[in-house]
Amino acid sequence: MTTKLLIGLDGQSSGDRALSFAENLAKLIGTAELLVVYVIEWSPYSFQTPEENAERHKRREEEISTAMERVVTPALARLEAAGIKAQGMVRHGNVADSLDSIAAKQNASQIIVGRSTETGLSKRIFGSSTANLVMGANVPVTVVN
């Protein structure tokens, strides 16, 4: 059975470092498979105008393809070049909850993320996605600085 590693990317440099770390880890393990995930922060309980609702499906498709194109596909290309088996996905939702539930569903043995880049008030109130993930995840989490 191959070991599955989930990498959470955020499109920032810390995500790149997480990717490098995972790449090395995968090489050491030998038979590892990587799952590259980008989560678009989104809440089903936010408030929108009727017009935003009418266009939501279109916007969602656009958001997914942009994230695929800019973050996930380059990461997959890099892993492929290094000879590592990998697949990518883009999801909407709460970052920490989504990473944890995907890891559970895909039987990933650990989650690798970069250190959070959030700053300011929202971090003080809600904590960072990374901290929330470390606190709540059901599999081991590696945070790369």
Binding site: W42, P44, Y45, Q48, R56, R91, H92
Partner: peptide
């Protein structure tokens, strides 16, 4: 997830 929810 990401589509218009019932709540919205």
């Amino acid at each position: 997830a990401g589509e218009v929810s019932h709540f919205q």
